[in-house]
Design a binder for these strands. Structure first.
Length: 156
DNA sequence: GCCAACGTTGGC
DNA sequence: GCCAACGTTGGC
């Protein structure tokens, strides 16, 4: 099993939104970065654990947990939809360019683990999310880091 | 709203 | 294949 950090802007789609979806599940569409896509395609498996991170907001940080709920990555339907913001004219059904996975809600942390807390904690100094210029919306996370974030967040 | 950092595009 | 121009991300 692997561990991930996935970013979302809470104004667009928050952990609350994921919790209130039917089945507490959501296809994670709109990923348009090759590195992030390759993580989904090559490395993600059903049951992988996810730190759900709120970005571009007042208090950026990990607000809770989710998990990968699809067996594998599959084509993101928004790439074929000319009305979608995520439409990609170069993608075809025979040769889809973009993939997604389903995400399932697990829990809210008792206390969100803020970006500044992560920066201040020496044990988390190697996390990608605090590396300068790091913008990837899907990042691999080491197990020890995952567990420590959970501990700070008050989630076993 | 600003802007640094980074990814992508496209002319050559 | 280079690289300037442009667009996006995301903290502040």
């Amino acid at each position: 099993m692997r561990y991930w950090l996935m970013k979302s802007e809470p104004d667009t789609f928050s952990l609350d939104d994921l919790q209130s979806r039917p089945g507490q599940k959501e296809p994670w569409d709109g990923i348009r970065n090759y590195q992030a896509r390759n993580f989904m395609r090559d490395d993600m498996q059903k049951g992988d654990q996810v730190l759900f991170y709120h970005s571009n907001c007042k208090e950026p940080g990990v607000v809770g947990l989710a998990e990968i709920a699809s067996e594998a990555a599959y084509p993101d339907p928004t790439q074929f939809d000319s009305k979608s913001d995520y439409f990609d004219p170069k993608a075809t059904k025979d040769k889809p360019r973009w993939l997604l996975v389903d995400l399932r809600y697990k829990a809210h942390f008792k206390r969100p683990v803020t970006l500044s807390q992560i920066r201040e904690e020496p044990k988390l100094a190697d996390m990608l999310v605090i590396r300068k210029g790091q913008r990837l919306s899907i990042q691999p996370v080491e197990k020890a880091h995952y567990e420590h974030i959970c501990k700070i967040g008050g989630q076993k």
